[in-house]
Design a protein around this nucleic acid. Structure first.
Lengths: 189, 189
DNA sequence: GACAGTGATGGGACTTGGTCTCATCGACCG
DNA sequence: CGGTCGATGAGACCAAGTCCCATCACTGTC
């Protein structure tokens, strides 16, 4: 028999989300999270650099975004490449079975400034990943930045929709449509 | 004679910047900052909600941005209104005499994740202010968001230039030019 | 089959950020 | 003269985060 229960980080993340929902982020201590997961504070900080990070596990999004952009057809424009990347993201991370989890997680995030702050930092990283990947396609820097920003805006838009309504549509199509709308809005005077 | 030295928050901010430059953000304790300012930890937290915030004093930017957008000529498009707002910001906050301070502050910010995180949150607030102000002008929501994002991008661009090079140009003109470039880059395929 | 190494975990001391409550004491006012 | 006000100080207290060392089942080796 295994000496330890498997997937300590996963258990910690699940326990944290439960407790944050029940008592709020700031009324939950790391010790309580660890105890609910059958672990200790030491183990918590072995897996997560700080308390916030327990809600930001899937850190491979940067790579996936970059890949998605790199593998877009050579003739594709910057925004098309971004659309492909968002699509790839949707297929890997925003699958139907994770929708409920995402919804719960996002509700907690929205409720606490400290967590929205971390989210903002993550988004900067993701935007930077997209910008760099576009740069590697030969897109001029400023254009790349604008495209990445617009892509992030479309992402937020699509994510809200994907999470929010009873909408059962996949993330990919929602993102493509959001990006089209953003592109249209960008044609203002 | 006054019982206390004047401008406690200002002295705390100045002491903090000095110490962060000398020893780094994380190697500086709040107690050290307070002592250098001739105060105590209690007083520090009376003026600043946390250690990061000591570098983010001027919190009236939101209002100024909103005003700038509101008072743009009625015929002006969203991005023109944003340009006016950035101009107003430049006249009030990014004056020549604050350039050196801004440079030092930004160097510290760039060096510490915790501080860049806070900066990201502030930017979200500023972008939201612009979006709302544009909405009050009758700009459709999505268009407003895009314009605000592009404005923020131009801001970052102009700010880097204003701070970085020996460039003695004012912030306003730099921002206008940056916004023009961003606008051009937004016309991609 | 004994034994040393490994790796995930626990335990607890310690520093610092941040909160809270109460004390202090000059200035100001009636 | 006495009372209030307002900015500050003092210190207890809690939780986040760091560090170092102990534990102990599993694993491979001789």
């Amino acid at each position: 028999m295994a000496r330890w229960q498997p997937d300590a980080p996963g258990r910690l993340a699940a326990a944290a989300l439960d407790l944050f929902e029940e008592h709020g982020y700031e009324n939950t201590t790391v010790i309580e999270i660890a105890e609910r997961a059958g672990l200790t504070k030491s183990t918590f900080f072995r897996y997560f650099p700080d308390k916030r990070e327990v809600l930001f596990g899937g850190g491979t999004m940067n790579g996936l975004l970059a890949e998605g952009i790199a593998s877009a057809p050579p003739a594709a424009g910057p925004l098309d490449a971004v659309a492909d990347a968002l699509d790839a993201l949707g297929r890997t991370f925003f699958t139907a079975d994770r929708r409920e989890f995402s919804r719960r997680r996002q509700a907690v995030l929205n409720a606490h400034t400290e967590l929205r702050e971390r989210e903002a930092l993550k988004r900067i990283g993701l935007t930077a990943s997209m910008t760099e990947a576009l740069g590697r396609r030969g897109v001029p820097d400023l254009t790349a930045r604008v495209a990445a920003q617009l892509g992030m805006l479309a992402w937020e838009f699509a994510y809200d929709q994907w999470i929010g309504t009873g909408n059962s549509e996949g993330f990919g199509p929602l993102a493509r449509q959001a990006l089209a709308e953003v592109r249209a809005a960008g044609a203002m005077r």
